[in-house]
Structure formats: C-alpha cells, structure tokens
Amino acid sequence: MIPAAVDYVRADSAEAAIAALAEAGDEAKLLAGGQSLVPLMRLRLATPSVLVDIGRLDGLAGISVDGDTVGIGALTTHSALEHSADLAAACPLLAHVAAQVGDPAVRHRGTLGGSLAHADPASDLPAAVLALGGTLVATGPGGSREIAATDFFTGFLESVLGPDELLTEVRVPVSTGGWCYQKFNRRAQDWAIVGVVVAEGGAGVALVNMGSTPMRAAGVEAAVAAGASAGDAASAAADGTEPPTDNNADGDYRAHLARVLTERALVAAGA
C-alpha cells in the first residue's frame, strides 16, 4: 500500500530537527533509516502528519571507544555496527546482535537509535543494549539528558522520549566478558519468537518478545550473581513476564523458550 499523504522536513542539524518536532506537535515522526517506520506507514498503522528526516545528519553516526565506554551515534547503521573492528574488539556482543537484525538490505539503512526509539519488544538491539547496561542520550529543546536503558522502555512501542526529543547517542560499557545471543524463530529474516541476550558472563540478561517491552531478566541475573548453575538460574527466566500469544506461539510456549534459551545462552557465555 502507498503511505498516506505526509509533509516532510529535511533537518540539517540536530537543533533544526528538534525545532521542527516542536513546531509540528505530537503527530510528527522522526525519519532515520525508515526500516520500521516506512513499513508501518505503508500499512497505514502509522500516519504521521510530518516526517522530520534526520537521515543526513552524518555527525550523529559513528563509533568511538573512550576508556571503558563505547559511544555510538544514534544514526549508526546496523551494518556499520556489524562491520566495525572497534566494536568487535570493545563490545563484540553488540556487533553480533546487529548482524542478526533483518537482512543485509535492512541493515544498510536501519539505525541503532531508530531501533531503540521504535521500542519494539521483538527487536534484537534494544535487548542487547539493556543487557549491556547501556545509556541513551536524548536531546530536546532544553538540552541533553542521559537515560539508563532500564528506564527507557515504558510500553509497546513506547519510551520515555518526549515528542520533541531526539536520540543522539547510545553508550555501552566496554564489554568483553562471556556473551551470547539466542534468537529463536522459524523462518529466516523473521523477528525473534523469543530471544535471550546474555552479557558479561551472565551479569546482564535481557529478553526479546517476552512482554510489551524489551526487559531485563532480573531473577536470572540475581541467581547468576548468587552462584547458581546455568540451569537453576535459567528457571527464573520467565518470572514476572507476560509473554504475548500470537500465531507463532502462545505465552506458555514462550515462557518455555525463554527458560531453554536462557540456559543455552548462559552456558555459552560461561556463566
């Protein structure tokens, strides 16, 4: 289907984008790579009045390692994450997860900031940033603020980002401890039916598609910290979750998958 009619503003700076958002009001949407937004517009599930195109803000793309922190511009594509030698050395988990998103054509256009701002619980990268204990930097009319990834996601496709805020950077700690991403689906290219990300040997564990938001598996993390075996720790993977039921799986099956995948991921990560 063809998207509904829409106005368009091409931003030439982050400040211009924020100003355009503030002027356009609640019905404006930021357009980065568009790999989530344009399909939704085609289905007319999203009908923004104005698109504020930030896709040319090259200053918001790039990966830099400073001490024990990796700073990633919000417009960095999944493909750039996948192929970055710096990221492979400083945070191989994030580079690997980026390579599991969609297919190469999607990864060439889709951006890390876009994936986080879209806040889809079935997406790969939000769970990875959660498991890593990342921090998001949002910029609005009043300046910038840092948001812990654990505080960012508030509901299905919803986050704490204000309507006039722009994600500018994602920061994750340098993380070379044991890690694993278990993504379970039936067809190539699909979203995960359930996914489990383990970072730093089990210190960080996050779940994909186990509720209305990407989420940490706090019970698993606590059990690992207390010295539990991978199997015992994984038994807590679905605790407190409300996994969805859909054509791919019912909630009970998703809970089962979460436990099985968590055990596999913990073992692979050396927990």
């Binding site: 368009y8 357009l31 568009g34 344009v38 399909p39 085609r42 054509a105 999607v106 060439h108 290219q189």
Partner: peptide, 26 residues
C-alpha cells in the same frame, strides 16, 4: 508490500536496499 520479499532490491550508493521501504525523498 511488506519489506519481506526483496523483489524490489536496488543498490543505493552501492549497497542493497529495499526500494519499497524507502521514500524517494530519502
């Protein structure tokens, strides 16, 4: 029509992209 099949794949600046999932203005 859903960004899944790849029949519309073209190269944009040398890299594959699904032309049904890009606005021309982009």
């Amino acid at each position: 029509d859903t960004s899944s099949c790849g029949a519309c794949t073209v190269l944009v600046d040398g890299r594959s992209a699904k032309s049904c999932t890009l606005l021309a203005v982009q």
